[in-house]
């Protein structure tokens, strides 16, 4: 943690503000401008970290493992070509967990003999690097059960980037099963406006030029009408219907700002790209307590082009949402 030091406390602190701080602190608020723009908003990270351990670690891992247990075919996919990079990712993430959080994790490697200890979950993984007979799961599937992030491996091939493996438990309305094996460009086909001016080609070029050992981060936001992290396309019929239930009275309870902190890392050994996605949810009632966030959020929702609103699934209840925000604004104004 510590990287998201965006939340700044100004002026006098009262008790109510202190409670807000604990709830909002660490939330990666995504809006930097008061208007919606779609751009390659990636920034380099120094030090180059691919994952973050938060206070929700235990809860989220419990949920993740439950989903992997029940719906493995939906949550994990890999092509045979991905194996070497999967091993590299496993080493990388165990190493990073241990070096960034030494009280919680330990990792030792002597030659190819490895031992990872997870003190938070009181577990250990002993294995021999690149020896499949020493692990019960594929490496990506195994290491993914110790981090909060969803993990996607993009193979960097002579003809472009391809999704070659992934452990995906918390997707925002997409299906890993459908996109596995696909080219980067085709995966992004349904994003409106993204084919304009060769934009997606430029994003792909940017990713294909990321240098070994460097990490780039971008924040991607959407809105969910549940407090569920797992909203895959596969269960849309279960969670999607809540979109109809939003009113300008209950919006504060139902609606959550969902932010994905996405990081891209070039694997130095195999030259493929690791894509990690850490998903954060913030209830609208909490969000509006922070005035600058509220204003920024309101402006972005207001200026969102219709097709993007449709893509992000907001169209159904956009009117109710805006009315809720304006009511809040009015209340604040009168309160002053």
């Amino acid at each position: 943690m510590g990287y998201y030091g965006i939340f700044k406390i100004t002026g006098r602190l009262d008790v109510r503000e202190v409670i807000q701080v604990s709830r909002l602190n660490g939330f990666p608020f995504p809006f930097t401008k008061d208007q919606y723009t779609y751009s390659n908003n990636s920034v380099p990270l120094d030090p180059a970290k691919t994952i973050t351990v938060t206070a929700d670690y235990k809860n989220e891992l419990e949920l993740k493992r439950k989903l992997l247990q029940k719906h493995h075919h939906r949550c994990f996919r890999s092509l045979p070509l991905s194996m070497e990079s999967q091993w590299e990712i496993m080493l990388l993430l165990f190493n990073e967990l241990a070096s960034c959080n030494p009280e919680s994790f330990t990792f030792q490697k002597k030659g190819d003999e490895c031992l990872f200890q997870n003190h938070l979950l009181e577990e250990e993984e002993a294995f021999v690097f690149r020896d499949v007979s020493t692990i019960a799961l594929e490496p990506l599937d195994l290491v993914g059960r110790h981090v909060q992030e969803d993990l996607i491996l993009m193979g960097d091939r002579h003809n472009g980037l391809f999704l070659e493996a992934g452990q995906l438990c918390f997707p925002s309305n997409w299906s890993l099963a459908f996109v596995q094996g696909m080219e980067f460009k085709s995966i992004h086909n349904p994003v409106p406006g993204i084919q304009n001016d060769g934009f997606i080609d430029k994003v792909e070029r940017f990713i294909s030029k990321i240098r070994p050992g460097t990490v780039w981060e971008r924040k991607n936001w959407s809105i969910t009408v549940t407090n569920m992290l797992d909203t895959p396309l596969e269960t849309y019929s279960v969670w999607g219907k809540h979109r109809q239930e939003v009113t300008c009275e209950n919006a504060g309870d139902l609606i959550h700002l969902r932010v994905e902190v996405q990081r891209l890392f070039r694997l130095p050994m195999n030259h493929d790209v690791l894509f990690t996605i850490h998903t954060y949810l913030l209830q609208l009632n909490d969000l509006i307590q922070q005035e600058s966030w509220f204003k920024s959020f309101y402006q972005n929702i207001k200026t969102l082009p219709e097709e993007i609103a449709e893509y992000k699934g907001i169209s159904t209840y956009r009117t109710e949402l805006i009315r809720f925000l304006e009511n809040h604004m009015e209340k604040e104004r009168r309160g002053q």
């Binding site: 990636s42 920034v43 070029r205 940017f206």
Partner: peptide, 8 residues
């Protein structure tokens, strides 16, 4: 974004 001539 990057100020390094890499992101375009």
């Amino acid at each position: 974004t990057c100020r390094m001539g890499v992101c375009g």
